[in-house]
């Protein structure tokens, strides 16, 4: 672009999806996934609140770099975050990525139990 501000975009591969998803570096991975798979039955990651609170889009990043916005520690602890767990609605790609769903379901015991 003439002003030199190029938006970088990356290829995100979701386990179980039939095709990769393109995601800009300024775009949350979950939103790019929803745009690529508008039919919820075909989505490789569940969509919930899209705001980091409910845990529906909990994923494990198996490859690639990304930045993370604030998300509920009920769903991704600091230790889990260090292992590559994240909420897809809170991460922005910094490279091509490979992601798989790590949804825990509603039966996860609250903190202090389990």
């Amino acid at each position: 672009m003439a002003d030199g501000t190029m938006t970088r975009s990356f290829t995100i591969r979701f386990k179980g999806a039939d095709r990769p998803v393109t995601c800009d570096e300024s775009q949350k991975v979950l939103i790019a996934m929803e745009q690529a798979f508008p039919d919820s039955r075909l989505q490789p990651v569940r969509v919930g609140c899209r705001q980091g609170g409910c845990g529906a889009c909990r994923v494990k990043v198996t490859k690639g770099d990304y930045t993370t916005a604030k998300m509920s520690r009920a769903h991704v602890t600091e230790a889990e975050q260090a292992q590559g767990y994240a909420l897809a609605c809170r991460i922005y790609p910094q490279s091509d990525m490979e992601i798989e769903s790590a949804f825990l379901g509603p039966r996860r015991a609250p903190k202090g139990q389990n």
């Binding site: 919930g48 609140c49 899209r50 705001q51 980091g52 609170g53 409910c54 509920s72």
Partner: peptide, 8 residues
């Protein structure tokens, strides 16, 4: 709808 922390 959801607030910015995911509360519906």
């Amino acid at each position: 709808f959801f607030d910015p922390s995911g509360n519906r």
